[in-house]
């Protein structure tokens, strides 16, 4: 197993559209890229038993989660011809309508990025130990579970 230290994927709070925009701009120098694909996970204001979710409070087993993200990166580069990929996930409170997950994959050709992005997002949802407390408007809560 490689001993390369995993990157920290987590950012405090919501991921801003400015951050996402700057991330796209940074790739203008990488001119072998012909296609980007981006996934943005947004917190939904679901209504459950008459109460509306106003935010998700994210926590994680950070060391294991970063290790899992690292493994997902390695597996994705192995499987797909990507030039680069970036993953950011929120920790702490993210309000409904704000972005909690940002996945960005780039390749010379478009077909690859469609498949790669789906693989990355689905694997994150299934394998990474992140937990979400769905907070209602009256400050009660329930625990989110990926389906």
């Amino acid at each position: 197993m490689k001993k390369k230290k995993p990157k920290n994927v987590f950012v405090p709070g919501a991921i801003s559209s400015q951050f996402i925009g700057e991330s796209i701009a940074k790739h203008q120098t990488k001119t072998s890229i012909g296609a980007h694909n981006i996934f943005l996970g947004q917190v939904r204001a679901d209504e459950i038993d008459g109460k509306v979710i106003t935010a998700i409070d994210y926590t994680a087993y950070e060391e294991m989660a970063n290790q899992k993200f690292h493994e997902i990166r390695e597996a994705t580069f192995e499987k797909f011809d990507l030039t680069c990929m970036h993953i950011y996930h929120s920790l702490g409170i993210v309000n409904a309508g704000e972005i909690c997950l940002f996945v960005f994959v780039s390749s010379p050709r478009r077909k690859v990025v469609f498949d790669a992005l789906e693989f990355v997002v689905e694997t994150i949802k299934a394998d990474v130990p992140i937990f979400g407390k769905e907070v209602f408007e009256d400050q009660t809560h329930q625990w989110k579970q990926n389906s």
């Binding site: 994210y58 299934a126 990474v128 130990p129 979400g132």
Partner: peptide, 9 residues
């Protein structure tokens, strides 16, 4: 570590 259902994304 005891890990409840995952909820990333």
């Amino acid at each position: 570590a005891l890990l409840p259902p995952f909820a990333g994304g």
